[in-house]
Simulated scan of single mutants.
Amino acid sequence: MSEAEWGSGTDAPRARLLDAARRGDSDAFGHLVDPFRGELHAHCYRMLGSVHDAEDALQEALVRAWRGLERFEDRGSIRSWLYKIATNRCLTLIERRGRRELPTDFRPGAAPLAETSWIEPYPDERPGPEARYMAREGMELAFVAALQHLSARQRAVLVLREVLGFSAREVADLMETTVASVNSALQRARKTLGTRLPGTGGPRSSDEEGLDEEGLRELADRYATAWEAGDVEAIVAMLTDDARYAMPPLPEWYGGHEEIRAFLVEGPLTYRWRFLPAYANGQLAFGTYAWDEDRKVYVALGLDLLAPRGTRIAEVVSFLTPEIFPAFGLPTEIAD
């Protein structure tokens, strides 16, 4: 069947697309599932804490959907069916490889470093209010990190119910369990998440923390300017008293003004810097570039995600993985 025969995008009659897909038309299948790819990828990321694992899980889920299309009952929602397949794939991956976390998650008795893998930032090409909306929809780094401390099934239930808005009955059907089991898992998940995100049992938003869009832009401008000027006191003045600074994949992190000031003076601020704005997890972010004297250029070093609280910054997570820059639309170097 040609695109002209079925129409385009979501305007095409689903029954005709489904019928064509069941006869082996891969283009028709693509038209059926493409409207859901973005949200399914985000769902897999929340579950797994890794962009790369999310891509793998989504691709495997779509392959399974394609192969199992005959088993799809047309009276149901194809979106719900795809979420069921993607969620089950994520549950399998979690069982195989455990959870991810950030250096700031570590406390005495935490997992040995050799057994730990880090949360990865999620590319967000949408600036301004849409980025703040993304944070409300459960993509904020702290929320995704907190999710990793839930059991796999609790994680799935909370995301499906609290973030995606599925009913308890729908989640029970997706996970092939009972409504009572879903409600019990949700209650336990909320309790655990409340200890990881004080004051809330779900995703947080910078909008709710006291800064509007103009305030966020102004804070971002001051932060980048202070770093490029090498002004440690200006940087520290923008931090909350209990601010934390972490640098995955390095295990160490710093807390409070004195620790962070000493770290900056002895380490990062011995270099010259340039910052470029980026968008990640619905949060303020920057691609950071350090001066390379031999090459006479600024080279990519890290992606910084900032978590504002009120009018100051409560946490900076600097991902020292410049190989991820292309995914965020950032160059790998900047001329002087």
Rank of each mutant, 00 (worst) to 15 (best):
A172H: 10
R188F: 05
E162M: 09
K84G: 14
A20W: 06
F328P: 10
L160W: 02
A54N: 11
E213W: 13
R64G: 06
E266T: 07
M238A: 11
A180V: 10
L239C: 04
F325N: 13
R96C: 01
L58V: 06
A131L: 01
E115C: 04
A280L: 10
E259M: 10
I94T: 04
N183V: 02
V33P: 00
R96H: 09
V265S: 13
G9M: 13
F319W: 15
S8L: 08
P108A: 13
V236N: 09
G194Q: 12
D53W: 09
E228Y: 03
D56L: 02
V182F: 04
L284C: 14
N88Q: 15
M247D: 03
V265Q: 14
V316G: 00
Y298W: 05
V33R: 07
G267D: 15
R97N: 14
S2A: 02
L219P: 04
E5I: 11
V33F: 05
G194I: 05
P331R: 05
G202F: 07
Q154L: 04
N183Y: 08
S151F: 04
S80K: 06
L301M: 03
G30I: 01
L269W: 09
W66E: 12
D294R: 11
E3P: 04
R155Q: 07
V297G: 05
E130P: 00
Y83E: 01
T200L: 14
I78Y: 09
R64T: 12
R169I: 07
P108S: 06
G49K: 03
A42T: 12
Q148S: 12
P127I: 00
A21W: 02
V171K: 06
I94C: 03
I260A: 13
E70G: 14
E3M: 08
L301H: 13
A280F: 07
V33D: 01
M139R: 14
W273V: 07
T240V: 07
F328S: 01
W66Q: 11
I334P: 04
R295S: 12
G267Y: 14
A226D: 09
N88L: 11
A65Q: 03
L284K: 06
A229I: 01
A4C: 02
E176H: 05
Q59I: 00
E333A: 03
R217G: 01
E213Q: 15
T10L: 04
E140D: 15
A220F: 00
F29G: 08
A110V: 01
R309E: 15
D74W: 04
H52I: 03
A262K: 14
R222T: 08
A243S: 07
L18T: 03
D25G: 06
P203K: 13
A21F: 11
L219N: 08
I119K: 14
S167W: 12
V316D: 05
E5C: 10
M139F: 12
S50L: 07
F319C: 05
P103E: 10
D292G: 10
F319T: 09
D74L: 01
L164K: 15
